[in-house]
Every structure is written in C-alpha cells, then in structure tokens.
Design a protein around this nucleic acid. Sequence first.
DNA 1: CGCACACTTGAGTCGGCTCAACCCTCGTGG
DNA 2: CCACGAGGGTTGAGCCGACTCAAGTGTGCG
Lengths: 246, 246
Amino acid sequence: MLSRTGAPPPTGHACVHARSSGGCSECKVRLLSVCAALTCEELDELEALSQRLHLAPRQALFRQGDPADAVYNVTEGMVRLSRLLPDGRRHVMGFAMVGDFLGLALPERYNVTVEALSPTALCRFERRPFANLVAGKPHLLRKLHERAGYELTLAQDHMTLLGRRTAEEKVASFLLTMRDRYALVGQGSVTVALPMGRQDIADHLGLTIETVSRLLTRLDREKALLIVPGGVRLTNLDRLENLAAA
Amino acid sequence: MLSRTGAPPPTGHACVHARSSGGCSECKVRLLSVCAALTCEELDELEALSQRLHLAPRQALFRQGDPADAVYNVTEGMVRLSRLLPDGRRHVMGFAMVGDFLGLALPERYNVTVEALSPTALCRFERRPFANLVAGKPHLLRKLHERAGYELTLAQDHMTLLGRRTAEEKVASFLLTMRDRYALVGQGSVTVALPMGRQDIADHLGLTIETVSRLLTRLDREKALLIVPGGVRLTNLDRLENLAAA
DNA sequence: CGCACACTTGAGTCGGCTCAACCCTCGTGG
DNA sequence: CCACGAGGGTTGAGCCGACTCAAGTGTGCG
C-alpha cells in the first residue's frame, strides 16, 4: 500500500549539470527523497516520466479504492493519508511532507485517501513506466527498499504508541515527532506548524477530538508549550520528552 | 528494523535438481518465502551462506539492543517479536511463523526481542554476506522489497486495529488473522493453534490479559468459538467476521 | 502431594469517550 | 460597517469500557 517515507539521512552526491530551470536536478527536495540515488543522466530519464502537480487545501490526490496507477513524491506542502472504516470511524495513517514518497507499498488499489492539508506540490509518476525504470536501476530499488524498511520501523513505533501509551504520551510524542520531521527537511524550529486539524490528530493517535484539545490546552497551561495560530511552540522540550518517554 | 513477512501469494518456479537431502531446494517453505525468487544455482549460493538453527520454546534468538548482524527465515514453529518500553510496559509487535522473514528493516541494532513460542527452526544468514548476495540479485531484492511493502500494509492494518477498534473487535480480528496466516502456509483449518500466551495476545492488541481472557470466554459462551487446549476452534466464522468487520 | 504457572473470574475504579454547550474567527452579504 | 452563519476549537458533566487489584481455578510436573 501507500505510505509516507519519513526521512532517513539523505545520502546524495552533488550533481553539476547545466540545464534549463525547473528540472529534477534543481529540485530542492531531491536530496531528501529517493531521487538522491540517481545520477544526472538517470535524473533526466526520471524527469521525462514525471509530471508536476499542485493541490489546493482539502483537494484529494486520490481516494481509497481508486486503482493504484501512480506513485508520487511530495515536494511542497503536506498531505493527509486516511482510511475510512465501514462503520464510519476514520483512521489517519499519517501525514506526508516534503521529500516523502507515496506508493512504496502498492496493492492493486489504493487503500488510503490522500488529501492536501496545505497548498501542496507533487511529482507524479505513472506506475508502469516508473516500475520499468526501477527495474533497470538496482540502486534506485535499493533506495526504495531502504525507505520501505525505514517506513516499517516508523509504523512499528506508531503501533507501540497506539497500543501502549496514554493520551498525554501520545500527544507529546506526536508533537516531538512532527518537530523531528521538520528538522530533517531543514525546517528545524521550536515552533511546529500543524496544518492538520484537531480531528486529524485525534484520528491519527486513536483519541477523540475533545481529548486532544483538552490535552493541548493543559500542556499550554502547564507551560510545556504555547498554542499559536496554525501550530504550537514547544517551550519546554524536556518536559515533553519526559512525557513521550521512548 | 526487524519484521515478519506475512505471506503474499507465493510465486515460485519448480526446481528439478538432484542433490543431497536437506538443501534449500528441498526446503518445504521455500515457495512461501523470499527464496521463491531464486533459481537452482542461486539457491546453492544462498545455501552456502545459510546456517540451520533450532530454538526451544522460551529461548531467545536475539534481544532488543543487540547488534543486528544477521537475518533469518523461519522454517518451522513460531516466534514472538516484542519490545520493552523503558517503564516496563511491553508491546508485542507480532508473531513470525513458517515462511516469514526476520530482518527486512534492519537498523544498526535490533529494536525487538525475538523468542520462540514453540520449537522453532530457522535459517540464519550473516548480514554482510547476505547483503552482498542481494546486491547482485535484483530479483531477490525485488522480492524483499515486495515483502517489505506487504509488511507495511499489514503494519498499517494493525495500526487501525490498535487505534480505532474495541477490545472485542481486536480479539475477533486477531483470531481471524491467525487463521488466515495458517491458511496461507497450507495449514488452513477452523481450529487455530495459539502457541502464545494470553499475555502475549494482550500485549499485541493493546489490551490487558484479563480483558483478553474475559472476551475469549465470552465468545466461547456465545458459541462463536470453542476454547481448546493450545488454541481455539472457530465455530461461527460469520459472527467473528461480523465483529472484526474490516 | 504440592508447587508453579497460566488462566479465569469478580468487584471497584478511572481515563478517555459521549453528549452538549459555548466560543472564536473569518468570510459573506446586506 | 455590522449582522450573521459556518466551521474549527474549547470546555463541562456524566458515563462506560477497559483497567486494576485481588482472589480463585485448573493443570502439569517434580
């Protein structure tokens, strides 16, 4: 199925290559993404397959059940990966941001719905051509596999979170995880943007919106953080890390 | 990190190959495992690297924190993958059985402890030589990647289970999942062996042992299943499937 | 027989959920 | 400019499902 790729330490090589602007080789997220595995020539091949795409907030990229005929790389903004249970309950699998890859685990049909939270830009690759490209590039496959492994550890960490942690631990842990992910893409700051709504956070952590809201305001009152428009400012990291306690 | 590979539909090719007994080519789980990707000659190479290993119940294969210097293929029995939180809480990531691969996502150190639940046999591969072998065999890497993707979907399903389902749904769902996994390795039956203890099930589902016990006896009383020594017999699949309601 | 260990069962508690207001901000239109 | 409505977020009161704590029941093994 589909999944975010968090961001394992980028391992790219510089690529001096004169070309018209806007290409993959000038892509500012290249070194953060699987594309870091490619040489200049390979980037050209990739670029030939790619298609730029922009999403407005609330716009869907695809929906659970749609035939899975493309994979994507997020180059700007943030999207939400969610799943609807037959009885209406919703589970938010995660959030994909700059550098994340959508489509590591591809079944016949997407089993999540992906929607933009903020204005988002992506590279789209048709599934078949992309698979063919990968087939001829073991190091790209290797990179994808590496990502998949990394994803797997993240998924497992999240399982532990969901299964064995209290509401407060979940919220603290979520905020710190978001901070770390921003840091990995060079946006490290004590102020963490939260483009998703409270309901999204709740559905991600296995809580209700009321619980998330209550805990955030409590952490605010306790001066562990400061709620600001569009996010939070983490004013007492020690306290939060204590709560999240790996 | 480490992880079970459930069992995507096996896709192997028959391999007529005369050789001394006990080799990979006679391995009865080959077609269920990643080894299905290999030709006879490649199997020989693999076999040269492999090391047979047997575990008695309760015996550990390795522990959380040990340097991750090998990967494994389970050929018999069942192991438990668990993780200990700093405060003593435990989370059981899953159970690996016949055909499952341990080591898809390998960080520096194992982040789970693997212990045998029943008498277990495995193939052990040193990490480096195995990685080298894989590096020269794109179709094996491909197979591993496929598995990783499959694992990822399983992990995500389990997340949904942990985050958004009630205790009863969790238990019913767990039993059906176990049944399906047995079926995939040719042990399909309405009687499901549960070599793990109640505590293990509880730690896997994010419940307490008492809750698991209570729900099993309730389902028994309601004639949805029958508790038998070492497992359960699912006597009313419809009812259970209703409860698990994907 | 008797201990150990896994499991079951019961009574009481509590964390997080449900239900229901309420508040605030922002966009729209009169 | 203000009135208004909608949507997101907050807050409160009460409840309930799963947890905690504690005892009891097998069952296998030395």
